[in-house]
Design a protein around this nucleic acid. Sequence first.
DNA 1: GCCGTTTTCGGCCCGACTGTTTTCAGTCG
Length: 570
Amino acid sequence: MQNADIARTLNRLANMLDIEGANAFRVRAYRSAAQTIESHPRALQEMVALDEPLTELAGIGQDLAKKITELINTGRLTVLEEAEKRLPPGLLQLMRVSQLGPRRVRQLHEALGIDNLEALKKAALEGRIRALEGFGEKTEAGILKEAERLDDAPPRTRLDEAHQAADDLIAWLEHARGAQRISAAGSLRRGRETVGDLDILVSSEDGPTIMTHLMDYPEIAEVVSHGKTKSTLRLHSGLQVDVRVVADESFGAALYYFTGSQAHNIATRKMATDRGLKINEYGIYKGRQRLAGRTEEEVLARIDLAWIPPELRENSGELEAALEGTLPELVTLDDIRGDLHMHTTASDGKAGLEDMVHAARRRGYRYIAITDHSQRLAMANGLDARRLREQMAEIDALNERLKNFTVLKGNEVDILEDGSLDLPDDVLKELDVCVFSVHSKFNLSREQQTARILRAMDNPHVNILAHPTGRIINGREGHEVDIEAVLRGAKERGIFLEINAQPARLDLADRWARMARDIGVMLAISTDAHATDQLGHMALGVTQARRGWLERKDVLNTRTVTQLRKLMRR
DNA sequence: GCCGTTTTCGGCCCGACTGTTTTCAGTCG
């Protein structure tokens, strides 16, 4: 049982109890625990097996520890099963309809016997919902539309797509009269790998004018709500956008508030109330007196906190670090000196060797590694030993002509099913950088997959394990593998792991990157570029690294080429 | 259900918008 499964079960339970009208704080406790568990780097199943106390996790006390242990040991949760006897589980579907929360779901169930999406749609079509107290024609129509939209609900939007949508909208808003500062907030600003919706913040003395300008934005498919300072839109892409206007003196407070995360905000608001202060989106207040709000820094300073990079705002240790003055100095794009994973036309890339070199030099890099596929990936025109040696000779000749730039000879060699490598040792040992990765047999058991990768790491010539979990965002889960065991194995052997910066991969994910840092395994942030413009994905990889608390020293490709060569010799 | 330098009970983040109401409940973030 994975942490995500436990979190999902607790969220189900929270929703059921919420519909039943249970104590709201009890419900919140379940939800907050689910959130903690989902982002916890260690498997709770393993903690239980090793008899480590779950109460060490924030928001998990004796009771929840007991329930989680039951769930892990038996695969069942008695309280949830009992709740499902009292209420039809189909009610949980109804909670996914926006505009329907626990109260209305209960009301629909009690008054009309509605207990699933189909029944909801039917009742709405027949006009039976509008008769309920607190409902009306508009609500009924809205519910019907939402219920039908759920049938083909878009998944969360990938970070790169969300960035593009936000940049376009911000460019539009910059032309609004009276717009002062504009910023994206929310999970986009925190750099999460996917976002549920966009939050855009504008400072202006004139909210209505900004909102009027917003309504002419050509990408709008639907206006969900439209107020003087806040509007919600759906774009043609399906992405939902919240735009909010505040006075410029409140911009910092609002930016802080709307960047979240929710768990982080709750924690800092609590810190404020402990000090007799109050934080809202307009500022930080002592009674009715506004103390600050123009910038995030001045708001946080009032509760004795240093400014916290948005990527860290998940209430997972950043507040303690900010209080103690031990916040990490996160790696930045400027720290990156080169890119250690990319392809050329020799295998499945779109650009030739020299094109990739020129593109890398334009980015200010000092080196790159050329890492085409190995022979087993025939589909990708993978290189055998002979072709790889030819490429190495070509690179040697190119390096003769280059000044202040080094092309490292590399390969992305396949890990075969038994953990052996797809090219013979005598050619691997001639490489400057050996990237190695899984491209086949994704469905081995966790034990087999982990053993396979550890065996590959026993080869003395490999250096960087690429896209270690193989997951594709909104695509596939990735192969089952014990990342902690892989990281410990890498630590023992002087091997590194990759944060693959392809927007659909971002693999390692943030929590594993943080675990790597804790274990002391350096990571390479690599674009796996198959074309020159894909070298630009580096920024996404850096964001992911920052979410994993990585500093410059934790990242392989912040090193000089000389340092790098030393680290590649095992 | 969690939590504790006002500690074992009594708190628990807070405001905008909508649709339904005549002053507010529910939802959302």
